[in-house]
Design a protein around this nucleic acid. Structure first.
Lengths: 130, 130
DNA sequence: TCCGACCCTCACATCGATGTGAAGGTCAAA
DNA sequence: TTTGACCTTCACATCGATGTGAGGGTCGGA
Protein backbone atom coordinates (compact mmCIF):
# COMPACT_ATOMS: atom_id res chain seq x y z
CA UNK A 1 0.00 0.00 0.00
CA UNK A 2 1.12 3.59 -0.46
CA UNK A 3 1.67 6.25 2.16
CA UNK A 4 -1.83 7.72 1.96
CA UNK A 5 -3.56 4.50 2.82
CA UNK A 6 -1.15 3.73 5.63
CA UNK A 7 -1.69 7.22 7.01
CA UNK A 8 -5.42 6.73 6.95
CA UNK A 9 -5.28 3.31 8.54
CA UNK A 10 -2.90 4.29 11.33
CA UNK A 11 -3.92 7.85 12.03
CA UNK A 12 -0.35 9.02 11.53
CA UNK A 13 0.15 11.87 9.07
CA UNK A 14 2.13 11.29 5.88
CA UNK A 15 4.73 13.65 7.21
CA UNK A 16 5.08 11.55 10.32
CA UNK A 17 5.42 8.31 8.39
CA UNK A 18 8.28 9.84 6.45
CA UNK A 19 9.78 11.03 9.71
CA UNK A 20 9.61 7.52 11.20
CA UNK A 21 11.43 6.29 8.15
CA UNK A 22 14.07 8.98 8.48
CA UNK A 23 14.46 7.86 12.09
CA UNK A 24 14.88 4.31 10.83
CA UNK A 25 11.81 3.00 12.62
CA UNK A 26 10.29 1.64 9.41
CA UNK A 27 11.79 0.80 6.02
CA UNK A 28 9.20 0.73 3.27
CA UNK A 29 10.17 -0.44 -0.19
CA UNK A 30 9.99 1.76 -3.27
CA UNK A 31 8.13 1.16 -6.46
CA UNK A 32 9.57 2.12 -9.84
CA UNK A 33 8.20 5.62 -9.74
CA UNK A 34 9.78 6.30 -6.36
CA UNK A 35 6.60 5.93 -4.33
CA UNK A 36 6.98 4.29 -0.92
CA UNK A 37 5.46 0.80 -0.75
CA UNK A 38 4.24 -0.42 2.63
CA UNK A 39 3.31 -3.97 3.55
CA UNK A 40 0.42 -5.07 5.73
CA UNK A 41 2.60 -5.57 8.78
CA UNK A 42 3.55 -1.91 8.71
CA UNK A 43 0.12 -1.04 10.05
CA UNK A 44 0.77 -2.77 13.35
CA UNK A 45 4.30 -1.53 13.42
CA UNK A 46 3.23 2.09 13.09
CA UNK A 47 0.62 1.64 15.81
CA UNK A 48 3.30 0.25 18.07
CA UNK A 49 5.59 3.18 17.33
CA UNK A 50 2.80 5.64 17.96
CA UNK A 51 2.02 3.99 21.28
CA UNK A 52 5.59 4.04 22.47
CA UNK A 53 6.05 7.62 21.33
CA UNK A 54 2.88 8.65 23.11
CA UNK A 55 4.14 6.92 26.20
CA UNK A 56 7.16 9.15 26.19
CA UNK A 57 9.88 7.04 24.60
CA UNK A 58 12.15 8.92 22.20
CA UNK A 59 12.68 7.52 18.71
CA UNK A 60 16.28 6.79 19.63
CA UNK A 61 15.18 4.21 22.22
CA UNK A 62 12.35 2.86 20.11
CA UNK A 63 14.83 2.22 17.33
CA UNK A 64 16.98 0.23 19.72
CA UNK A 65 14.29 -1.97 21.19
CA UNK A 66 12.04 -2.46 18.16
CA UNK A 67 14.13 -5.18 16.48
CA UNK A 68 13.88 -7.23 19.68
CA UNK A 69 10.11 -7.06 19.84
CA UNK A 70 9.51 -8.85 16.59
CA UNK A 71 8.35 -12.37 16.12
CA UNK A 72 10.15 -13.72 14.12
CA UNK A 73 13.21 -11.95 15.45
CA UNK A 74 15.03 -9.59 13.16
CA UNK A 75 17.95 -9.54 15.56
CA UNK A 76 19.52 -12.91 16.05
CA UNK A 77 21.00 -13.86 19.33
CA UNK A 78 24.42 -14.28 17.84
CA UNK A 79 24.48 -10.62 16.84
CA UNK A 80 23.49 -9.43 20.26
CA UNK A 81 26.32 -7.55 21.97
CA UNK A 82 26.64 -7.25 25.75
CA UNK A 83 26.08 -3.52 25.30
CA UNK A 84 22.78 -4.24 23.63
CA UNK A 85 21.74 -6.53 26.47
CA UNK A 86 22.62 -3.77 28.92
CA UNK A 87 20.53 -1.28 26.97
CA UNK A 88 17.59 -3.65 26.95
CA UNK A 89 17.88 -4.31 30.67
CA UNK A 90 18.06 -0.60 31.38
CA UNK A 91 15.05 0.10 29.20
CA UNK A 92 13.16 -2.78 30.75
CA UNK A 93 13.63 -1.26 34.18
CA UNK A 94 12.84 2.19 32.91
CA UNK A 95 9.61 0.92 31.40
CA UNK A 96 8.71 -0.69 34.69
CA UNK A 97 9.23 2.62 36.45
CA UNK A 98 7.02 4.42 33.98
CA UNK A 99 4.37 1.75 34.27
CA UNK A 100 4.39 2.00 38.05
CA UNK A 101 4.13 5.76 37.97
CA UNK A 102 1.28 5.70 35.50
CA UNK A 103 -0.50 2.93 37.37
CA UNK A 104 -0.31 4.74 40.69
CA UNK A 105 -1.71 7.90 39.19
CA UNK A 106 -4.37 6.12 37.19
CA UNK A 107 -5.51 4.30 40.29
CA UNK A 108 -5.66 7.58 42.18
CA UNK A 109 -7.90 9.00 39.50
CA UNK A 110 -10.05 5.88 39.58
CA UNK A 111 -10.37 6.07 43.33
CA UNK A 112 -11.23 9.74 43.13
CA UNK A 113 -13.88 9.14 40.49
CA UNK A 114 -15.21 6.29 42.57
CA UNK A 115 -15.63 8.57 45.53
CA UNK A 116 -17.30 11.18 43.38
CA UNK A 117 -19.79 8.60 42.18
CA UNK A 118 -20.59 7.41 45.69
CA UNK A 119 -21.07 11.07 46.53
CA UNK A 120 -23.60 11.62 43.81
CA UNK A 121 -25.82 8.77 44.91
CA UNK A 122 -25.60 9.58 48.59
CA UNK A 123 -25.53 13.34 48.16
CA UNK A 124 -23.37 14.14 51.19
CA UNK A 125 -19.99 15.85 50.88
CA UNK A 126 -17.12 14.41 52.90
CA UNK A 127 -14.27 16.47 54.31
CA UNK A 128 -11.31 14.16 53.97
CA UNK A 129 -8.94 16.94 54.96
CA UNK A 130 -10.08 16.77 58.59
CA UNK B 1 13.76 24.85 51.79
CA UNK B 2 15.02 26.93 48.87
CA UNK B 3 15.21 26.04 45.21
CA UNK B 4 18.76 24.72 45.32
CA UNK B 5 18.03 22.09 47.93
CA UNK B 6 14.82 21.03 46.21
CA UNK B 7 16.69 20.74 42.92
CA UNK B 8 19.30 18.56 44.55
CA UNK B 9 16.79 16.36 46.32
CA UNK B 10 14.58 15.83 43.27
CA UNK B 11 17.10 15.84 40.46
CA UNK B 12 15.15 18.55 38.66
CA UNK B 13 17.15 21.61 37.61
CA UNK B 14 16.37 24.99 39.15
CA UNK B 15 15.26 26.11 35.74
CA UNK B 16 12.81 23.27 35.58
CA UNK B 17 11.40 23.94 39.03
CA UNK B 18 10.70 27.53 37.96
CA UNK B 19 9.13 26.19 34.79
CA UNK B 20 6.85 23.88 36.76
CA UNK B 21 5.78 26.86 38.79
CA UNK B 22 5.13 28.90 35.65
CA UNK B 23 3.02 25.98 34.43
CA UNK B 24 1.16 26.08 37.74
CA UNK B 25 2.19 22.61 38.79
CA UNK B 26 3.67 23.83 42.07
CA UNK B 27 3.17 27.02 44.08
CA UNK B 28 6.04 27.68 46.47
CA UNK B 29 5.79 30.51 48.96
CA UNK B 30 8.16 33.46 48.98
CA UNK B 31 10.31 34.69 51.79
CA UNK B 32 10.85 38.40 52.44
CA UNK B 33 13.80 38.64 50.10
CA UNK B 34 11.85 37.15 47.22
CA UNK B 35 13.39 33.68 47.41
CA UNK B 36 11.06 30.76 46.69
CA UNK B 37 10.25 28.71 49.79
CA UNK B 38 9.40 25.06 49.33
CA UNK B 39 7.85 22.73 51.87
CA UNK B 40 8.74 19.11 52.48
CA UNK B 41 5.79 17.82 50.51
CA UNK B 42 7.09 19.54 47.40
CA UNK B 43 9.76 16.86 47.11
CA UNK B 44 7.21 14.15 46.46
CA UNK B 45 5.17 16.43 44.32
CA UNK B 46 8.09 17.21 42.04
CA UNK B 47 8.95 13.51 41.77
CA UNK B 48 5.39 12.84 40.75
CA UNK B 49 5.48 15.57 38.13
CA UNK B 50 8.77 14.29 36.77
CA UNK B 51 7.38 10.79 36.54
CA UNK B 52 4.27 11.86 34.70
CA UNK B 53 6.27 14.09 32.37
CA UNK B 54 8.67 11.28 31.67
CA UNK B 55 5.74 9.03 30.92
CA UNK B 56 4.67 11.42 28.21
CA UNK B 57 1.95 13.50 29.81
CA UNK B 58 2.03 17.19 28.91
CA UNK B 59 1.99 19.78 31.70
CA UNK B 60 -1.48 20.81 30.58
CA UNK B 61 -2.89 17.41 31.55
CA UNK B 62 -0.78 17.06 34.67
CA UNK B 63 -2.11 20.39 35.86
CA UNK B 64 -5.65 19.15 35.41
CA UNK B 65 -5.31 15.85 37.20
CA UNK B 66 -2.83 16.78 39.91
CA UNK B 67 -5.35 18.42 42.26
CA UNK B 68 -7.37 15.20 42.24
CA UNK B 69 -4.48 13.01 43.26
CA UNK B 70 -3.95 14.65 46.61
CA UNK B 71 -4.87 13.28 49.97
CA UNK B 72 -6.29 15.42 51.54
CA UNK B 73 -8.08 16.61 48.44
CA UNK B 74 -7.43 20.12 47.26
CA UNK B 75 -10.42 19.89 44.97
CA UNK B 76 -13.65 19.37 46.80
CA UNK B 77 -16.39 17.34 45.28
CA UNK B 78 -18.76 20.27 45.27
CA UNK B 79 -16.44 22.19 42.95
CA UNK B 80 -16.16 19.35 40.51
CA UNK B 81 -17.85 20.18 37.22
CA UNK B 82 -19.17 17.52 34.85
CA UNK B 83 -16.54 18.68 32.36
CA UNK B 84 -13.85 17.92 34.90
CA UNK B 85 -15.27 14.47 35.50
CA UNK B 86 -15.24 13.89 31.75
CA UNK B 87 -11.61 14.99 31.55
CA UNK B 88 -10.66 12.65 34.36
CA UNK B 89 -12.45 9.74 32.77
CA UNK B 90 -10.79 10.42 29.45
CA UNK B 91 -7.37 10.67 31.06
CA UNK B 92 -8.02 7.55 33.09
CA UNK B 93 -8.67 5.61 29.91
CA UNK B 94 -5.76 7.20 28.16
CA UNK B 95 -3.46 6.22 31.02
CA UNK B 96 -4.75 2.67 30.81
CA UNK B 97 -3.90 2.59 27.11
CA UNK B 98 -0.39 3.85 27.77
CA UNK B 99 0.07 1.35 30.55
CA UNK B 100 -1.06 -1.49 28.32
CA UNK B 101 1.25 -0.43 25.52
CA UNK B 102 4.23 -0.09 27.83
CA UNK B 103 3.44 -3.37 29.56
CA UNK B 104 3.19 -5.27 26.31
CA UNK B 105 6.50 -3.93 25.11
CA UNK B 106 8.22 -4.39 28.43
CA UNK B 107 7.09 -7.99 28.56
CA UNK B 108 8.38 -8.53 25.05
CA UNK B 109 11.77 -7.26 26.12
CA UNK B 110 11.67 -9.45 29.21
CA UNK B 111 10.79 -12.47 27.15
CA UNK B 112 13.55 -11.68 24.69
CA UNK B 113 16.12 -11.27 27.45
CA UNK B 114 14.88 -14.48 28.99
CA UNK B 115 15.49 -16.33 25.76
CA UNK B 116 18.93 -14.77 25.45
CA UNK B 117 19.79 -16.01 28.92
CA UNK B 118 18.59 -19.53 28.22
CA UNK B 119 20.72 -19.36 25.11
CA UNK B 120 23.84 -18.45 27.01
CA UNK B 121 23.55 -21.40 29.39
CA UNK B 122 22.59 -23.89 26.72
CA UNK B 123 24.81 -22.45 24.00
CA UNK B 124 22.58 -23.35 21.06
CA UNK B 125 21.03 -20.68 18.78
CA UNK B 126 17.39 -21.09 17.88
CA UNK B 127 15.91 -19.94 14.60
CA UNK B 128 12.45 -18.75 15.54
CA UNK B 129 11.87 -17.39 12.06
CA UNK B 130 11.52 -20.86 10.63
C1' DT C 1 -4.77 16.10 -23.47
C1' DC C 2 -5.20 17.85 -19.30
C1' DC C 3 -7.03 17.80 -14.64
C1' DG C 4 -7.17 15.98 -10.01
C1' DA C 5 -5.37 13.10 -6.76
C1' DC C 6 -1.78 11.03 -5.59
C1' DC C 7 3.37 10.90 -4.69
C1' DC C 8 8.32 13.02 -4.10
C1' DT C 9 12.04 16.17 -1.59
C1' DC C 10 13.35 20.13 0.91
C1' DA C 11 12.98 23.54 4.09
C1' DC C 12 11.18 26.49 7.24
C1' DA C 13 7.69 26.96 11.32
C1' DT C 14 5.81 25.60 15.75
C1' DC C 15 5.28 23.69 20.29
C1' DG C 16 6.70 21.83 24.68
C1' DA C 17 10.45 20.65 27.71
C1' DT C 18 14.83 22.07 28.72
C1' DG C 19 19.62 24.48 28.82
C1' DT C 20 22.37 28.61 29.29
C1' DG C 21 23.76 32.95 30.27
C1' DA C 22 23.35 37.91 31.40
C1' DA C 23 22.46 41.46 34.84
C1' DG C 24 21.57 42.00 39.21
C1' DG C 25 19.94 41.34 44.53
C1' DT C 26 20.88 38.84 49.39
C1' DC C 27 23.53 37.12 52.90
C1' DA C 28 26.97 34.71 55.66
C1' DA C 29 31.60 34.20 56.64
C1' DA C 30 36.48 35.63 56.14
C1' DT D 1 33.93 45.19 53.64
C1' DT D 2 34.46 42.22 50.19
C1' DT D 3 33.94 37.59 48.27
C1' DG D 4 31.34 33.61 47.03
C1' DA D 5 27.34 31.05 46.96
C1' DC D 6 23.04 31.55 46.82
C1' DC D 7 18.79 33.70 44.75
C1' DT D 8 15.87 36.75 41.22
C1' DT D 9 13.93 37.78 36.19
C1' DC D 10 14.40 37.79 31.32
C1' DA D 11 15.52 36.15 27.03
C1' DC D 12 17.47 33.59 23.67
C1' DA D 13 19.02 28.65 22.26
C1' DT D 14 18.24 23.75 21.53
C1' DC D 15 16.09 19.36 20.71
C1' DG D 16 12.51 16.20 19.34
C1' DA D 17 7.98 15.57 17.37
C1' DT D 18 5.09 17.64 14.27
C1' DG D 19 2.72 20.94 10.77
C1' DT D 20 2.80 23.36 6.41
C1' DG D 21 3.83 24.69 2.05
C1' DA D 22 6.57 25.25 -2.20
C1' DG D 23 8.02 23.18 -6.46
C1' DG D 24 7.68 19.32 -9.00
C1' DG D 25 6.79 14.21 -10.79
C1' DT D 26 3.16 10.16 -11.85
C1' DC D 27 -0.91 8.40 -13.43
C1' DG D 28 -5.70 7.35 -14.27
C1' DG D 29 -10.00 9.00 -15.98
C1' DA D 30 -13.00 12.81 -18.30
Amino acid sequence: MRIGELAERTGASRRLLRYYEEQKLISPGRSDNGYREYAEFHVGRVMQIKGLLDAGLPTRIIRQILPCLDQPRSIYFDDLTPEMVAILEREHDHLTQRIDCLTRNRDSIAEYLETVRRMKTQGAPIDRAA
